[in-house]
């Protein structure tokens, strides 16, 4: 349990948010061209990093907007929050 600074609403309790998993996984531009291996990679394979990871969050019980977060998964410390479409901050 921790506080999350929603870029639209300000600091709120983590239970208002829904975690959306690893960020910056791009949807395939040509889905019909994809091999089974590439589909598996896109759909299922995850870095699942212990350390700083970029991930998506949704303020589900608030503004309902999506945003990105850089968070240290070993101690849940939030390093940065940035909007959808923005580049991840340098490490």
């Amino acid at each position: 349990m921790f506080l999350i600074n929603c870029p639209y609403c300000g600091e709120r309790d983590q239970q208002e948010f829904k975690a959306g998993g690893e960020a910056h996984i791009e949807r395939p531009k040509q889905p019909t061209e994809l091999s089974d291996d590439q589909w598996a990679e896109y759909l299922f394979m995850r870095k699942n990093i212990k350390g700083v990871q970029f991930e998506r969050w949704n303020h589900a019980h608030g503004c309902r907007k999506w945003f990105n977060m850089a968070r240290d998964t070993s101690n849940d410390e939030i390093k940065a929050i940035y909007k959808m479409g923005e580049k991840p901050p340098p490490q």
Partner: peptide
């Protein structure tokens, strides 16, 4: 389980 990825071996109170 909590719905976010974490290796912290502690979960949320709720």
């Amino acid at each position: 389980t909590d719905d976010y990825i974490s290796y912290s071996q502690k979960g949320s109170h709720q």
